[in-house]
Design a protein around this nucleic acid. Structure first.
Length: 242
DNA sequence: CCGGTTGTTCAGCG
DNA sequence: GCGCTGAACAACCG
């Protein structure tokens, strides 16, 4: 489930519960979520991969990590980590990380770093990139303070789109190319969102989990690159190492 | 059917 | 205190 665009889809799906009172909370979370029973949800927000259930006093933060999932109105076989029951339905979260946030969200979240947000600030992202000259682009695309919501799929697909080798150092990449990287990340995130909604996301992968370059038809390289050692799929021929 | 993974945090170490 | 490594989490797909 987890990259940013998937969370925006989740936010849309739970709109029937906005401004609704939670009649019961459940689940096997160790956190004490009982104070939220009887309280009204005033908003659902997302920041990258964070799903935020906002009450007038406090917020429940859900992070689906790698294996997390959710259902609406129907339970899975496995016990939910958290469930929120409403008069008009129930929301279930499985195998996720949950935190309670007491501070105002604006104190913790830089909304302009969220690749799906209306507040997204491309200029600020470019500025942040120039501050990490020794970082590889493959790592940069996973840094949530720069590209909140970007994950490994977005990383691989964007690098192929802009024809940049994942192990290029930011300091070596021309400013115009950094701009293209930032623009394309935002653009791909929305393509991801639309394809995911239409259940055709996988079909549109050009390099992620693929074996052959769609452009030159040579074999793709698969390595665990950068500080984060996440899978990179790329074409040595088409993607330039800066 | 087993291996790998759309992610993050934390403990332990040098 | 820092950076690095590996573990933990625990579900689904191919």
């Amino acid at each position: 489930m987890p990259e940013g665009p998937s969370l925006v889809i989740l936010k849309e799906l739970v709109q029937p519960f906005k401004n609704k009172k939670v009649i019961a909370v459940g689940g096997n979370t160790k956190l004490d979520v009982t104070p939220f029973a009887g309280k009204k949800i005033i908003d659902f927000k997302t920041w990258g991969k964070h799903f935020l259930i906002c009450f007038s006093k406090g917020t429940i933060r859900i992070h689906l990590m790698l294996f997390g999932s959710y259902t609406i109105n129907e339970q899975k076989a496995t016990p939910p980590r958290l469930s929120l029951a409403f008069q008009n339905g129930t929301l279930y979260f499985y195998t996720c990380s949950i935190k309670i946030i007491d501070e105002p969200l604006d104190n913790i979240y830089d909304w302009s770093a969220d690749i799906m947000s209306d507040a997204w600030d491309a200029k600020a992202a470019i500025e942040k990139l120039t501050q990490h000259p020794d970082t590889m682009v493959c790592d940069a695309l996973l840094m949530q303070d720069i590209f909140s919501g970007s994950g490994n799929i977005i990383k691989n697909e964007v690098l192929f789109r802009v024809k940049v080798h994942p192990e290029s150092l930011l300091g070596n990449v021309a400013k115009s190319k950094l701009k293209a990287l930032v623009t394309e990340t935002r653009k791909y995130a929305f393509d991801f969102y639309n394809w995911k909604k239409a259940y055709v996301l996988r079909k549109h992968w050009k390099v992620h989990t693929k074996k052959i370059c769609p452009d030159c038809e040579r074999p793709l390289t698969k390595t665990y690159s950068g500080k984060f050692k996440r899978r990179s799929f790329y074409c040595e021929n088409c993607q330039i190492l800066y």
